[in-house]
Computed example of a mutant assay.
Amino acid sequence: MTKFDQQADIRRSIRPPFRGAPVSPTRIGRSCARARVYCLPHAGGAAGMFRTWPELLPTDIEICAVEYPGHGSRLGEPLLETIEQVARSVADLVAAGPSEPYALFGHSMGSLVAFEACHLLAARGSAMPRLLIASGHRAPKAPQSTPPMHAAPHAEFIAHLRQLGATPPEVFRSPDLLELVLPILRADFRACETYRPRDRSKLRIDIAAYGGFCDEDTGRDELLAWQQETTGECVVRMFPGGHFFVLDCADRVVAMLERDLAKAISTEPATPCVTG
């Protein structure tokens, strides 16, 4: 049996009842940490994209990679339909976690999830992250520069995935594997493209917006617009590469994350801002 046959079997057979927390963390790192980083993947992504990060960080920073339902190791579970649903589960996870200082890092779709989770935590009066790192996504209120793709015809959607560059080439060569991942990708794209932020008070935390120099959809101006979402400091960091610069130059991204996190946890935490 080839690995593609195995993937098809997984799709047909793994359909257990949905029980437990809708978002599951994969802890990669150390149990005694000075700080923790919750890492939220892109559309169609899995927690495994962050597996190399602990090797690039000091031993006192823990990576807690979040696995969305229906993705990666949770393939048999139902997909969540909206950014708000995923964010609610992330907020529950964070609120139940240890008390050390923490940051939220989200790439692409993960940026929206992290942003919404911050507002939910603020509304609950929970401990806030010292830093929100929004990677590879325009600010929530910045206009979308490309047409929605979640309902695009098959060929057009595949071409878009190829252009983004994160989907492994073997996926496109295997009908079974493609059949497995396309519903996940379309559902995640729909969640992102139909998301509309509500009018609320600004966050009171620092934001770092990361982007790729060659990302055609998210440039410096779209990243600078994250300043509109907080009363704290907002910095923009640019890296070589396109939309998935986080994979192409992970060492540079993680080094900058370490610097930004160290600065954030060296200051007093902001008072939670109750949002409506």
Rank of each mutant, 00 (worst) to 15 (best):
12 R>N: 12
214 C>G: 05
78 P>H: 13
33 A>F: 02
193 E>Y: 05
36 R>V: 15
94 V>P: 00
85 Q>M: 11
72 G>F: 04
22 P>C: 08
151 A>F: 01
197 P>R: 01
149 M>H: 08
71 H>A: 11
259 R>K: 10
75 L>D: 02
87 A>H: 02
211 G>E: 05
193 E>H: 11
102 Y>D: 11
93 L>I: 13
161 L>V: 04
163 Q>K: 13
177 L>I: 15
148 P>D: 04
91 A>Q: 03
112 L>N: 13
255 A>V: 15
151 A>P: 05
66 V>S: 13
106 G>T: 09
178 L>R: 03
258 E>G: 07
126 S>E: 15
204 R>P: 08
33 A>D: 03
255 A>W: 01
47 A>R: 05
50 F>P: 07
170 E>A: 07
191 A>G: 09
147 P>R: 01
142 A>Q: 06
173 R>T: 10
205 I>L: 10
154 H>K: 10
26 T>V: 14
140 P>I: 05
215 D>H: 11
206 D>F: 02
118 C>L: 13
100 E>I: 12
262 A>N: 13
108 S>D: 09
65 A>T: 08
41 P>C: 05
259 R>T: 11
273 C>R: 08
45 G>P: 02
92 D>Q: 09
113 V>H: 04
206 D>G: 07
44 G>S: 06
100 E>H: 08
16 P>R: 03
228 Q>S: 08
94 V>H: 00
233 E>S: 07
174 S>M: 08
55 E>D: 10
83 I>D: 10
126 S>L: 00
118 C>V: 14
135 S>E: 06
216 E>V: 14
76 G>K: 03
85 Q>K: 13
272 P>S: 09
238 M>S: 12
35 A>I: 07
53 W>I: 15
85 Q>W: 01
85 Q>S: 13
102 Y>P: 15
19 R>I: 15
130 R>W: 00
264 A>Y: 02
8 A>Q: 10
201 S>I: 06
91 A>W: 02
77 E>A: 12
225 A>D: 14
83 I>Q: 00
51 R>Y: 03
223 L>C: 06
50 F>Y: 14
268 E>Q: 11
91 A>N: 02
56 L>G: 13
43 A>V: 13
105 F>H: 03
191 A>F: 09
262 A>I: 02
270 A>M: 06
11 R>I: 03
37 V>I: 15
103 A>N: 10
233 E>H: 09
104 L>H: 05
127 A>K: 12
106 G>N: 02
22 P>V: 15
255 A>I: 12
136 G>Y: 05
107 H>G: 12
82 T>D: 11
67 E>P: 12
38 Y>M: 03
161 L>A: 06
218 T>H: 00
254 V>C: 02
191 A>D: 07
98 P>M: 09
136 G>I: 07
94 V>R: 00
182 L>R: 08
124 R>K: 10
101 P>Y: 01
179 E>C: 12
55 E>R: 14
261 L>D: 06
